[in-house]
C-alpha cells in the first residue's frame, strides 16, 4: 500500500506540513517494499490562486492509496482527490511523519 504525507522535509523524521495545497513536500511511503519517495512541492509557492488543485494533481499521478495531512484539502483539491479514489486522514499537522504513520496505523487519525 502507498501512503502519501504532506511534509516540511524529505525525511521520515521531518515535521508534517499542516497545509495541503501549499505543503512543501509530498512524501510517499510504500509499506510493501518499505521504500520512500519525496516530491518537492515548493514551486507551488508561485501559484497565486489554485494551489490546492495543483498539489492534488501531483497526488493523482502518484496514485497513493492513502493521504495523511493536517487541516485537510480545500473544496477544489478535495474534488480531485475524490476522483483519484484515495482515502484522506487529517489531524496529523503537529506530528513528525513517523508519528503520523504510527497514529494512522493505530486508527487515531480522523477521516476527512
Amino acid at each position: 500500500m502507498k501512503i502519501a504525507f504532506t511534509t516540511k522535509g524529505a525525511k521520515w523524521d521531518a515535521q508534517m506540513d499542516t497545509r495541503f495545497g501549499r505543503a512543501q513536500f509530498i512524501l510517499l511511503y510504500d509499506d510493501s517494499t518499505d521504500s520512500f519517495t519525496s516530491i518537492d512541492n515548493s514551486a507551488v509557492e508561485n501559484v497565486a490562486h489554485g494551489a490546492g488543485p495543483q498539489t492534488a494533481q501531483k497526488l493523482f499521478d502518484l496514485k497513493p492509496n492513502v493521504l495523511i495531512t493536517g487541516n485537510g484539502p480545500g473544496g477544489n483539491a478535495a474534488t480531485v482527490l475524490t476522483k483519484a479514489g484515495l482515502k484522506i486522514y487529517i489531524g496529523a499537522g503537529d506530528m513528525t511523519v513517523r508519528q503520523a504513520y504510527e497514529a494512522y496505523k493505530q486508527g487515531e487519525l480522523k477521516a476527512f
Partner: peptide, 18 residues
Amino acid sequence: NFHAVLKLGEQIMVFPEL
C-alpha cells in the same frame, strides 16, 4: 495561466471558480 484546467490521467477537469 489560472490553473483552472487540469489533466488528470485520462480526463480533463475544469475548476469554474478559478
